[in-house]
C-alpha cells in the first residue's frame, strides 16, 4: 500500500543519518558488539512504532537518543544488571592534591597520552547516571537542554551530574596513571581511602 511505503521512506530519511552515532553511543555503554547491535535494532523498531510521537519541538537525534536510552535501561532492568547507584558526591580535594597528575598541566598531558580505548574503558566504569551525561555532553556534544529531555531530569541536575561525573572520571584517570607510572606499590604520600 502506498501509504505504508511512504511511511517507510520517511522513516528511513529521518533515521538513516543517525545510525552511526546511535551505534557509537550504544557501543560506549555495551559490554559486547552484539549487545550494541541488539540495542540499535530495538531502538529502530521502537522508533518505527512511535514515529507519530516525533513532533517539531524535538530534534530527531535527541528523540532517537531518548529511545535508545530507554532501550538500554529496560535491558539492564530485565537482566538485573543495573549498575551500582553512585553515592560519590565530592572528591576530597586533599586526596587529589597528593597526586602530581592532578595539577592542570600534568593532567592535560596525561589525557593526551591516553589512548581512546583506555579513556572509553574508564568512561564505561563510571556509575550509570554520571556515565550517561558525560557521554551525551562531552562525547556527543549534546546541549544541557536536550540531555534534560533525554533523561527526563531538570537542566540543573544535568549540570551537577556532569560536574560530578567529570570529577569522578578525572580522579579515576589520575589514580590509574599514578599506579601505571609508579607501580602498584607506590601510593601517594599518605594513606588514601579507596
Amino acid at each position: 500500500m502506498p501509504l505504508s511505503s511512504h511511511r517507510q521512506k520517511q522513516f528511513r530519511t529521518l533515521t538513516q543519518p543517525w545510525r552511526d552515532r546511535l551505534y557509537a553511543i550504544a557501543l560506549r555503554q555495551a559490554d559486547t558488539v552484539d549487545e550494541a547491535e541488539v540495542w540499535l535494532q530495538e531502538t529502530m523498531l521502537r522508533a518505527w512504532r512511535d514515529m507519530d510521537d516525533l513532533t517539531d519541538t524535538i530534534t530527531t537525534y535527541s528523540w532517537l537518543l531518548k529511545i535508545l536510552d530507554h532501550v538500554i535501561a529496560d535491558d539492564r532492568r530485565r537482566s538485573h544488571r543495573r549498575r551500582q547507584i553512585a553515592l560519590v558526591v565530592n572528591v576530597d580535594d586533599n586526596v587529589l592534591n597528593r597526586y602530581a597528575e592532578a595539577a592542570p598541566g600534568p593532567f592535560e598531558q596525561l589525557l593526551q597520552q591516553q589512548k581512546d580505548a583506555q579513556l572509553l574503558q574508564q568512561i564505561r566504569s563510571l556509575p550509570e547516571n554520571f556515565r550517561r551525561v558525560v557521554v551525551y555532553r562531552d562525547i556527543e556534544g549534546i546541549s544541557y537542554r536536550e540531555i534534560a529531555y533525554i533523561l527526563d531530569i531538570p537542566p540543573g541536575t544535568v549540570m551537577s551530574r556532569l560536574s560530578r561525573g567529570r570529577r569522578l572520571l578525572a580522579t579515576q584517570l589520575i589514580k590509574h596513571a599514578a599506579i601505571d607510572l609508579h607501580g602498584q606499590q607506590k601510593k601517594p604520600s599518605e594513606q588514601q581511602s579507596p
Binding site: R19, D20, R21, Y23, A24, L27, L40, L96, A102, A103, P104, F107, E108, L111, Q112, Q114, D116, L119, L120, I123, V134, R137, D138, I139, G141, S163, R166, R167, L169, A170
Partner: peptide, 22 residues
C-alpha cells in the same frame, strides 16, 4: 580552579574521541 581546568581538558579530549560507524 584546578577542577575547572581539568574539566576543560577532559571535555576537549573526549570531544576528539574517534567515532564509530555501523
Amino acid at each position: 580552579r584546578d577542577d575547572v581546568q581539568r574539566q576543560q581538558a577532559l571535555a576537549f579530549r573526549l570531544n576528539r574521541l574517534g567515532s564509530q560507524t555501523v
